[in-house]
């Protein structure tokens, strides 16, 4: 432990944590563009700078540990000016639509620009002119909006462990891309969308969530219906329709990670192919029916069959896709209702 003074307040803090972590623990909102607590420190954006008494240069708080007696200011004039300069420079190189960029999830670059009131870039910045990569069905990549914070590269490397993307080129021409700068596809990418979740700009955007206004979304936490991993995520609902999926930072099993299926499946929920009325087959063709008719038909038939052939002539297939509650009541219908143990579920895998 060391004692420091943070924004005028004396405190005992752990010497192993960064000044950023300590500030956030104390409710001080230090802005960051490249820091991600789940990833190794990249320390490239310098949005997180703080002023340490006696030091000439501002220090990046995400990679600086406190020393005994340090006096730290997180929002001094010098700090604020430095942050505004950084934003100014980035905005000068950014396409004009920064402030109209709609993005569900991380849109921090725009938020900071507003918060620090840097509403336009003052440099006659050279704009980048890259092609937007939209060849895949999952997400857009617009390198012109990239601020090179490196989070996508790190998450792909350290969490998804796929090494699909990296920094390409040098200096002003640095960009993030795939090997040989090929478009994203199933040949080079797992389409897990984790890079999209961490990106603080409009450079990476899920196609399903593009142009959806975040304020309109209702989030409902649930469990993935595909493999047995049981990832949790938020269904994003607008006007009673699921429009996409976003991760939950603190999900027990998967943290903020998802795979392609969990991330992008949700358009199947409102599929036009869904069945909406019961069907009864008459003379070989399906005829629409009410539930009432369908249940009556079933009850009559079951009674006939049970009377004639006994309960063990009735069988049921439950489902490893359905909920526990559905499975429980289904086997109960067979055991306690029909009076048979003839209940199984498909593929015991």
């Amino acid at each position: 432990m060391v004692s420091i003074t943070l924004n005028g307040q004396k405190m005992e803090v752990s010497a192993d944590k960064s000044i950023l972590e300590i500030s956030r623990e104390n409710g001080i909102d230090v802005p960051t563009l490249c820091y991600n607590e789940k990833l190794k420190a990249f320390s490239g954006c310098r949005m997180c700078v703080v002023e340490i008494a006696g030091r000439k240069n501002l220090a990046a708080s995400c990679s600086t540990k406190p020393l005994e007696g340090m006096v730290i200011q997180t929002h001094s004039d010098k700090v604020m000016k430095s942050r505004r300069d950084i934003l100014d420079l980035l905005i000068s190189n950014h396409p004009k639509d920064l402030f109209t960029q709609v993005k569900v999830g991380n849109n921090k670059f725009q938020e900071y620009a507003k918060e620090y009131e840097v509403l336009e870039g003052s440099y006659e910045g050279e704009k980048k002119n890259y092609e937007i990569d939209s060849a895949n069905a999952a997400y857009y990549r617009d390198p012109n909006k990239c601020i090179l914070c490196g989070q996508c590269v790190s998450v792909c490397d350290q969490i998804q462990i796929s090494h699909t993307i990296d920094f390409l080129g040098k200096g002003f021409n640095t960009k993030v891309g795939t090997a040989f700068d090929l478009p994203i596809s199933t040949d080079n990418c797992r389409l897990c969308g984790q890079c999209v979740s961490v990106c603080p700009t409009g450079s990476l955007i899920h196609k399903q969530l593009a142009n959806i206004e975040p304020e309109k979304i209702k989030k409902v936490r649930t469990t993935c219906p595909f493999c047995g991993t049981g990832c949790n995520f938020d269904l994003n609902v607008v006007d009673d329709k699921v429009v996409g999926v976003t991760p939950i930072e603190d999900a027990t099993v998967n943290g903020a990670s998802l795979c392609v299926k969990g991330r992008y499946h949700s358009d199947m929920i409102s599929s036009k192919q869904r069945l909406t009325t019961p069907l009864i087959k008459k003379d070989g063709v399906f005829v629409e029916a009410t539930y009432d008719e369908a249940f009556d038909y079933i009850a009559t038939k079951i009674t006939e069959i049970k009377d004639k052939y006994g309960a063990d002539s009735i069988t049921g297939l439950s489902s490893a896709r359905c909920t526990n509650e559905d499975n429980f009541i289904f086997q109960k219908l067979f055991r306690a209702g029909f009076g048979t143990n003839n209940v199984d579920h498909c593929a015991r895998t």
Partner: peptide
């Protein structure tokens, strides 16, 4: 065992099996 389907574990736990009650 890594279960293939999301709720194989649950379906088995619930007794959706011809030889086991819940």
């Amino acid at each position: 065992p890594l279960r293939g389907q999301n709720n194989v574990q649950g379906a088995c736990d619930m007794g959706a099996l011809p030889n086991y009650f819940p």
